[in-house]
Structure formats: C-alpha cells, structure tokens
Design a protein around this nucleic acid. Structure first.
Lengths: 121, 121
DNA sequence: TTTAATATTCTACAAATGTAGAATTAATTT
DNA sequence: AAATTAATTCTACATTTGTAGAATATTAAA
C-alpha cells in the first residue's frame, strides 16, 4: 500500500512534528493552506491504510505515524529503482550521482559515507 | 506534468525499445499482459501529455519517446527529494546509500563514480 | 443553560486513473 | 468483392484522489 501525493504531504509534516493534531498540521502548510476538513479526510484515509493512528487528547486527536520515514521511503525507493532501473540499485546510484546537483562538499561527504559502508561489509 | 504509474510502465518499455508499436509494447509486458486497447488508451493519453509521438509505419504506428529517461527521471527524483528530504540531495544520498543493499563491489563502483564527479568540480 | 466555538464525520463531486469492450476503419486473404 | 483480421478510436465504468461544504457532536464561554 502506498500513500497518495496529498497524503504523503501530510505524512511528511507528521514525521517532522512527530505527533500533531489536524490543526497543527495545517499550520505546517504553506499558503494556501488546505481546509481543515481536507486534512481530516486525508488523516482518516491514512488511518484506514494503517499509516497513522491517534490518541485522544482532550477534545482533539493527536495523530502519530505508524511507519518510520525510513521504512516507507526505502520501500518507495526500491519501487522506483525496480521501475526505472531494472532493479539495479547501482545503476540508479550512478545515475543519481551524476544527475542531481550535489556540490563538491556534498559529494565528499557522500564519499565518506560510502567508505564507512564499505568498511562494514 | 507527470506520467501516471501505468503510463510510466509503458514509457519504460518504450525507452528500452527506443521505438515500438502497441503490439510490440504488449510483448514487453509480463503476464498477465494488458489488453491492447489498454495500451492504446495509455499511448493516446501519453501523446496528449506530449511524452510520446509516432510515425505511421504501414498500417500501424511506431511510437517513440519525446523525453529522455534521464530528463524525466531527474525531474522525478528531484520531486522526490524535495518531498521527503526538504530539498537536500545529500541527505537523500546518504539515506540511499545506507538503505539500499548495495554490495561491496557496487559501493566501490559508486565511489569511483563519485570520485570522477568530484574531479569535475 | 443558551450560545458560540471547535473538532469530527458525512456527503459530494470533479478529475485522474486503470482497464477494456464495442464500434469503426483499413488492410489481407479467399 | 466478401469475409477475415488487425489497428485505432469511442465509450464506459469502477476506483482513487483532491478538495471541501454541510451536518453533527462536543466543549467552553457568556
């Protein structure tokens, strides 16, 4: 199961805030902010899909993520890789490295990360 | 503008084949293959969106991509990065490196690519 | 407690998507 | 030429998505 675009945006705010009410989520949006009922609808759908749950706090609900960004995202990336790069992560990686505009500094950082990953193997 | 999931799949086959008729595209699918009318619908929608065009070849049409995979994909990735990593490609990169299961060999290749990218800067 | 404010749910609806049968057109074979 | 086959277009329809007003319930303020 996957979140829709609009749901992903909610989720993203929620990951960031860790937990939040509908109202707080709206605040996280840029203008033009969506109607609160829109957020409510999305949250309900997300709950159906088991991506969030909530705790009743006073009169309102405090939603929280049921999946970690990492988890969600790694699945997402894997789908992407499968879809576009015939399941070759390294093909994707090299593409990525060449196409995104990483600065020299960022590339060096990335290299360091890769080095430490290599050491782990 | 973006392609839908199903359209992306057609596009992917098309990038691979370079050019193809609806029929040839279907062959590229795994079972259960979609109906040819489904492919036709998708191709027409993709044409409306200016992602493909065709040349009439005898009785049928030979479709070809109007956008390069690279182009399409780099936009796509950038959207993804923006969406999930607050526009930080390096954040995405390090995530990616740690989350996907690249082998030692692949990591070393990646490192080499990064090195050559660093040199270019 | 009447009223006002707030939160949540219902209902709605247009647009996009996935999917494909029916109809039509064009070419090929009898 | 008539019948068959193949390609393309039309039409259709169920789902999913984005969006939010109307209705309802709950709580706080007057």
């Amino acid at each position: 199961m996957k979140l829709s675009k609009a749901e992903e945006e909610v989720m993203n705010h929620l990951w960031h805030l860790k937990k939040a009410t509908a109202k707080e989520l709206i605040e996280a949006y840029e203008d033009p902010k969506p109607a609160i009922t829109t957020i409510a609808t999305l949250l309900k759908r997300m709950q159906d899909k088991k991506f969030v749950d909530y705790l009743q706090k006073g009169r309102s609900r405090e939603y929280f993520p049921l999946v970690k960004k990492q988890e969600y995202f790694s699945k997402h990336v894997n789908g992407l890789i499968k879809n576009f790069f015939n399941d070759s992560a390294s093909q994707f990686a090299s593409f990525f490295t060449q196409e995104t505009n990483l600065s020299k500094k960022e590339l060096q950082e990335l290299k360091a990360i890769i080095d430490s990953e290599i050491k782990k193997k």
